[in-house]
Design a protein around this nucleic acid. Structure first.
Length: 512
RNA sequence: GGUCGAUUCGUCUAGGGGUUAGGACGCAUCCCUUUCACGGAUGAAACACGGGUUCGAUUCCCGUAUCGACUACCA
């Protein structure tokens, strides 16, 4: 039985797509591409009370930003649609009924108060885990305990009901997880989960089995939080008679908080000042905006590379992978088992690697954008030159402007520690001489000419250039560190440089 | 509490019955250099614990501990 691989990413539109979800989508995508299969996107919106406006668009946009493109989705449907569970609503009841007919499910009429009372009763009786199961269902109001005609009349009268799966009392359920190996669970620890809710919508458990079956899903790659309910899903496949086409399961390790323990959450993001969402997300209910990797300056290829390595590795020492290379190298058996703590430093490092690999022209585009916002007109050629000397020291594209601001704006204040250490009579003498040399120089300043003029200025004063270099930098940029100074001079130009030297000479005092 | 899962440097991880336990991020030192950064070199840094099995265990088995997930008419 060699079916075409079909995998799905099935988020629910209840808010921004979490980074863990993005990684799940990525692994599904990589697996599909690697195996020549299909990657589907299915929206799991069976809980109408949790629907959040804009969440679906967010999922779509976030995946698009990263280049994780579904082969089938609500926006480019294939032949097994619809791709939103809310739109598939009419399909589910017949399957639930089929299970009732086969004796694997039953109607239950208990109100939430009655359920609560049951739990309290069991807790009081010191039952360790109060649940609706093979024991307790005999004391509840359902089609197993009620007379047949009463069940019928309740159903006909329109009384609200749910359909629950009837979990056998004693049975060993086993499943062979692609990542974890054999997992065995005894049915006595499972409960009679609700399959159909009283609002006529299926729960996740029913919907995902029915849809995965109908959509021809061959592999279910999802988060570890689903592992405990996986045995239930196996049982459902069996009850439906779909065991021979049951997908294989792969439960991914969780993404953990960087410190301490627990699942990575938005709270951690705020605490540590890094994003957990791919893009900015404005909560329509609170109006709060949560920051995204995109807006923080992470580039999609870098972010993807970073994400792929959170729980997976290629088995060799390579670190930098394009999407195509990831596809080529990917395999499920190289996914780790244990939870992965989130380290934003690694994300930054990846971003730096990708930033440096970009051409000066590409980076100039980012810089030009920022400059336009600041109202500073600069031509492309100059922007590219600046990008060239700045990119080795930038983490984000926005650093080009932030760290290179002095290229456009003359300093009006000077780093005190550098002033006190380096601003001396020698520096003043050299700068005065340099100023004159510059004034007498008729051509455009190149890095080479800037340097030779400076060397001359030092020489006529009998001063070694190295001794005053820091002061020269200070005068021109206001700080003691930065990219190659002669390149900077060439870029800002002769006139600007003279003005800056003048300003420094007039405003800085030589300490004795 | 119960069920399930996990456990190699601070972090991400490779490895797997006999290794100087490898790499990456971060950190430190040195080199390069007009500074910072980049780059290069070097260094500190790990098999959770206890029992087995074995000539030999970090690796296999069993416990313990710790951490996590799940335990809804949420997904």
């Amino acid at each position: 039985m060699n079916r075409e691989v079909r995998v799905r990413f099935a988020p629910s539109p209840t808010g921004a797509l979490h980074i863990g979800g993005v990684r799940t989508a990525l692994y599904n995508y990589l697996f599909a591409r690697k195996t020549g299969g299909k990657f589907l996107l299915r929206i799991e919106d069976t809980d109408q009370t949790r629907f959040v406006e804009g969440a679906e668009d967010y999922i779509k946009d976030a995946l698009a930003w990263l280049g994780i493109s579904p082969d089938e989705s609500p926006w480019n449907p294939g032949t097994v649609g619809p791709y939103r569970q809310s739109e598939r609503k009419p399909m589910y009841m017949q399957y639930a009924l089929d299970l009732v007919e086969k004796g694997h499910a039953y109607y239950a009429f208990d109100t939430s108060e009655e359920l609560e009372a049951m739990r309290q009763r069991l807790t009081a009786a010191r039952v360790v885990s109060p649940q609706y199961n093979s024991i307790t269902r005999t004391q509840m109001k359902n089609s197993l305990t009620l007379p047949e005609d009463e069940v019928k009349s309740r159903l006909e009268s329109g009384e609200p009901y749910v359909i629950r799966v009837k979990i056998p009392r004693k049975e060993e359920v086993r499943l062979n997880d692609l990542i974890r190996g054999w997992v065995m669970v005894h049915s006595s620890t499972l409960d009679d989960k609700v399959l159909m809710k009283s609002d006529g919508m299926p729960t996740y458990h029913l919907a995902n089995i029915v849809d995965d079956h109908l959509m021809g899903i061959t592999h279910v790659i999802r988060g570890e939080e689903w592992l405990p309910s996986a045995p239930l899903h196996v049982l459902l496949y069996r009850y439906f008679g779909w065991e021979d086409t049951m997908p294989q399961f792969a439960h991914l390790p969780l993404l953990l908080k960087p410190d301490g323990n627990g699942k990575l959450s938005k709270r951690d993001a705020d605490k540590h000042g890094f994003p957990v969402f791919p893009m900015d997300w404005k909560d329509p209910n609170t109006g709060d905006t949560a920051m995204g990797f995109k807006e923080q300056g992470y580039m999609p290829d870098a972010f993807l590379n970073f994400l792929a390595f959170l729980g997976w590795n290629p088995g060799d020492h390579r670190e930098l992978f394009t999407l195509d290379e990831l596809i080529e190298a990917f395999s499920i058996d190289r996914i780790g088992k244990s939870g992965t703590k989130f380290d934003i430093n690694k994300a930054k490092w990846y971003n730096e690697q990708y930033l440096r690999a970009k051409s000066d022209e590409e980076l100039a585009e980012f810089l030009l954008e920022d400059l336009e916002k600041e109202g500073i007109p600069v031509d492309k050629e100059k922007a590219a030159k600046i990008a060239h000397i700045m990119k080795e020291r930038a983490t984000f594209p926005s650093d080009l402007w932030k760290e290179g601001k002095f290229m456009f704006v003359a300093p009006t204040s000077f780093d005190e520690s550098v002033v006190s250490k380096r601003w001396n009579n020698d520096a003043v003498a050299v700068l005065n001489a340099y100023k004159e040399k510059l004034s007498g120089y008729s051509e455009d300043l190149s890095p080479e000419s800037a340097k030779s003029l400076l060397e001359e200025a030092a020489e006529i004063n009998g001063i070694k250039l190295g001794k005053v270099m820091q002061a020269v930098r200070l005068a021109a940029t206001g700080v003691g560190a930065g990219p190659d100074l002669m390149a900077v001079f060439s870029i800002i130009g002769k006139e600007e440089l003279i003005q800056r030297i003048d300003y420094a000479l007039n405003n800085l005092e030589v300490n004795s």
